[in-house]
């Protein structure tokens, strides 16, 4: 018998965590709407099963913005059906998930080009032209 023939499986059922996270997100979104307060919920710090994460993704739905960043692995940034709630997943170079965040903000920081880099580019462009 081979190692891969041993059918080791763990149960993967929703535990109700997705509902709890939805409550928290609703609270955060109200604060963003009322006072402009941004927030981040770190899904990896919560004891969520894969089924919970899928359930949460279904509950949040899919919005109209989708962006991919390529830098030592990719990062995927998607706005959910609830405007202002973004699903941000950072992948490592082997496609493993490094961090999975729900950002409650107008636009996640990582999408904004940093002024230092804009200055550096401006300088480089001026040298070329």
């Amino acid at each position: 018998m081979n190692l891969i023939d041993i059918p080791v499986k763990t149960l993967d059922k929703p535990t109700g965590m997705a509902n709890a996270v939805m409550n928290e997100l609703s609270d955060h979104l109200k604060r963003l709407a009322d006072d402009g307060e941004t927030n981040i919920v770190d899904l990896m710090s919560l004891p969520m099963t894969e089924a919970d994460i899928n359930e949460l993704a279904d509950m949040l739905g899919v919005g109209e913005v989708k962006a991919t960043i390529s830098s030592i692995g990719t990062s995927s940034i998607r706005e959910t059906a609830y405007r202002g709630i973004w699903w941000v997943t950072h992948y490592g170079d082997d496609e493993q998930v490094l961090s999975e965040l729900i950002e409650i903000t107008q636009v996640p920081d990582i999408l904004i080009t940093h002024m230092d880099e804009i200055r550096h580019s401006a300088q480089a462009m001026a040298t070329v032209n």
Partner: peptide, 23 residues
């Protein structure tokens, strides 16, 4: 890139359970 740098900081902050603005 700064995005790579921010991604590093996000991953570290997430791993260290630092407050959301920390990254």
């Amino acid at each position: 890139s700064r995005r790579t740098f921010l991604k590093f900081c996000s991953t570290v902050a997430s791993a260290m359970a630092l407050p959301p603005t920390a990254a």
